[in-house]
Amino acid sequence: MAVRNILITIALAFMTLFLVLPLVIVFSEALSAGIGTYFNALVDPNVADAIYLTLIIAAVAVPANLIFGIMASWCIAKFDFVGRNILITLIDLPFSISPVIAGLLEVLLFGLNGLLGGWLSDHNIQIIFALPGMILATTFVTFPFVAREVIPLAQEQGNDEEEAAVTLGANGLQIFFRISLPKLRWGLFYGVLLCNARAMGEFGAVSVVSGKIFGQTDTLSLAVESLYGSYEIQAAFAVASLLALLALLTLVLKAGLEWRHRDEIHAVRRKRAT
């Protein structure tokens, strides 16, 4: 009993110190100069641009990774091919590489003096220090989230239900949309939530490729840094509170949906009974 209480106390203290307290501080600092100032900071044109940019990046990166994730899990779970294990390892690569390195690699590839830089500038295509580079960097960093969530699920579920659908007369498209996709939907849903949270909060890789032009290539997380750097503490915390709200919203959404569909989740997640 004593050990249990000690462990619970340590866990709670740790959570308070590292999760709850920062959250409280973010909101208290953001609102320290009153609610009016808080909203003024958010409607600042540069901050509004950062919000817009963040939304655009997530709106491209998340669907792209959703599609990649579905395709990768389909390949890996349904087929046995040469290089399958290499593919599984490669999917984890963005997790094991520092986002800053990922950003640097992109600069080396697409930058003015980079491998493809000459060709790109000849054709007037700007990737580095512009939106395409930021989207690419975010997509790379958030790539594993959906795939990692869905692949084990697809592997565990196997191919039996698809075969059953074939014998019941379904064609390829019907099988995909009525069987394969729905049975993965909770895995996909968690993956998308995590992927989205990370895409909106990504700092390192985007920071390297964006050039941090305030009001032009600033995302929310970059804006927090530049505002803080220019001693606009309250505004920095106001923007940070947006990201914190996003995190909270993600959690609430996940918990709410889990609760509403608890029967079905339970049914889908349980190991196949034999």
Binding site: A164, T167, G169, N171, K183
Partner: peptide, 20 residues
């Protein structure tokens, strides 16, 4: 195609659609 064969199949482990 399987659809036109008019065959019903019961799988060893049933392969019921778990999300339905």
């Amino acid at each position: 195609r399987p659809k036109e064969r008019g065959v019903g199949f019961v799988f060893q482990h049933y392969a019921l659609f778990r999300h339905m």
